[in-house]
Amino acid sequence: MEPVQIISGTAVPLDRSDVDTDQIIPSDWLKRVERTGFEAGLFGEWRDDRDFVLNKQEHAGANILIAGPQFGTGSSREHAVWALHQYGFRAVISPRFGDIFRNNATKNGLVPVQLSAAGGRTLMDAVLNDPTLEIVIDVELRTVEAQAIDFLESFPLEDSIQHRFLNGLDDIALTLQHADDIGEYEAHRPDWVKELEIQHNAR
């Protein structure tokens, strides 16, 4: 993934709670074996509605999505993250994320910004009020700022994930540096586990 440090721009306000990954990308899109082209399926069931917030002219070009609590719950489909990222979002702001979605986001350069419930509400109202509100997300400082409304809040991001964002690192390559430890672990499994594996592989 590409390194990510500062994301600045405007936000699309999706003022709903419990937006699950089935809503972010409907299951029809999961049949594809490719990794690109998912932007067309983003919020597939809602996009037909001309009044749906993503369709509004004033939000064209926004690169941040701000949503209500429990965003990205449900299915593990990474396609949800691909769809958001390929559509052009670089960060999602919510008071609470589904676990797997948040993990998936961090592997694809989409920054999950978890604010307090009050902070999330304030920022949501401000964006609803003024679609041109400039928001700056700083991965290094772990802060979200909207200067025009004097908004500044920090958000949690584990050191290791921050490090990967800032340097655009591939998780797998990092783990493979510890291949010896993995081999060592495998050699010291309980005897019955090793025996069972041998039997299993002999079949």
Binding site: S76, R77, E78, H79, V81, I100, N103, N104, K107, N108, D171, I172, T175, L176, A179, I182, E186
Partner: peptide, 15 residues
């Protein structure tokens, strides 16, 4: 449950 990037991670490293 895990996402597809993690599936790849487990395939490659079993961890």
């Amino acid at each position: 449950g895990i996402g597809t990037s993690e599936v790849e991670h487990v395939l490659a490293t079993q961890t």
